[in-house]
């Protein structure tokens, strides 16, 4: 590590909570808190809630890709695993399993199971690098999709499970639009803050160093594999929490939700938003959900997927760093190098 890098790292480590929480964060949070007062139920859950859920899954990918240099296509599979735990051990009306255990048992269980599964995927994937990580995680995602689709004993095959209900706690049914939105928001804020803070913790900085030069890190005594697998476990926590919300959001889970299409969708969200900063995946999710929902009204049923594709192509063509990068390009600043974690510290390295 060069002297400059060390100094910069020291400076970063010195920055605490106060520097992370900016007035803009406050404004954004305020807006998100009063959003239910302005939005219809549809915009609250189908756009707002769904964006936050997809944003969290993409955030778990951003954590791996942005800080760990590991691009995973299996994040939706991990979220789906949590959703299947909810369906199998909670209540469903598909007549298969549905042990109706209470929510405070199955929810932590689902998230924990997802994170352990994620660590297991990571254990396999960390032996590879770059394009091979993408391929191996794609293989895992595809295998899981076909397995759930054809296995009836455990996963109830193609139709999957329906009739999943969010819990009723404190006299509130948590799938009602307003409570569900706040539930998603709370989860997303916690995940966002945790990633933002974690990126500057000792572990976060070590992980980024491992991404930049694993050989050197190994030489000075770090256990590179353990750091990477731990990052997978952490990202599994976020994806798992999002998976539980996804199960409650759709009220059902089927292999269609964890197919190859949705898996790539998560990657698109992360790329569109930008991998440099944890806010990127959420921006990407909002944009992607909006365009996927309303493109059919703009250009009709025959060509709406073309419009979606062209839009994504345009974003990636104009800015390889997604919308975050686009913003930086359009709005150059004199002190550009000074703000935020730049690409040299938290972007994806080739």
């Amino acid at each position: 590590m060069s002297l400059v890098e060390t100094q910069r790292t020291e400076k970063l480590r010195g920055s605490g909570w106060r520097e992370l929480v900016t007035p803009a964060h406050g404004l954004l949070l305020l807006f998100l808190l009063v959003y239910p007062a302005m939005a219809s139920d549809f915009f609250l859950t189908q756009i707002g809630g769904y964006s936050l859920i997809l944003g969290m899954i993409a955030l778990s990918l951003m954590l791996l890709a942005g800080y760990g240099g590991m691009v995973s296509l299996a994040q939706i599979t991990i979220a789906g695993a949590a959703a299947y735990v909810i369906a199998i051990f909670g209540e469903n009306n598909s007549g298969v399993h549905g042990f109706a255990w209470p929510w405070w048992v199955i929810t932590p269980m689902a998230i924990l199971f997802a994170s352990v599964l994620s660590a297991a995927f990571g254990w396999v994937a960390v032996r590879t690098e770059g394009i091979y990580t993408i391929m191996i995680t794609l293989a895992i995602a595809t295998a899981c999709f076909y397995f759930t689709q054809q296995n009836y004993a455990l996963f109830n095959g193609f139709p999957g499970y329906s009739g999943l209900r969010a819990p009723e706690v404190f006299g509130l049914y948590w799938r009602d639009p307003v409570p569900f939105y706040y539930l998603c928001l709370a989860n997303a804020v916690v995940a966002y803050a945790a990633v933002l803070y974690g990126a500057r913790s000792t572990f976060g900085l070590t992980l980024q160093a491992v991404r930049d030069n694993p050989r050197r890190m190994r030489a000075i005594g770090y256990n590179v594999t353990a750091h990477k697998v731990f990052a997978w476990w952490l990202s599994g926590l976020i994806a798992g929490a999002a998976g539980v919300l996804l199960a409650w959001f759709n009220g059902r889970i089927s292999p269609g939700s964890i197919a190859v299409g949705p898996a790539i969708n998560i990657l698109i969200i992360a790329i569109i938003g930008g991998l440099r900063h944890p806010v990127g995946p959420f921006i990407g999710a909002v944009v992607v959900v909006l365009i996927q929902t309303f493109a059919i009204d703009l250009v009709g049923a025959e060509r709406f997927n073309t419009l979606i594709g062209l839009f994504f192509l345009a974003v990636v063509f104009l800015s390889p760093d997604g919308i975050l990068g686009l913003w930086e390009r359009v709005k150059p600043r004199p002190d550009r190098d000074a703000w935020g974690p730049g690409p040299e510290r938290s972007g994806v390295r080739e």
Partner: peptide, 25 residues
Amino acid sequence: MSMTRRTMLALAVATGLTAPAISIA
């Protein structure tokens, strides 16, 4: 004041969410 601009961008995108809700005629 790091990330201010980015977060403001997020705000701007989010504001767009409410516009269609108002225009349901």
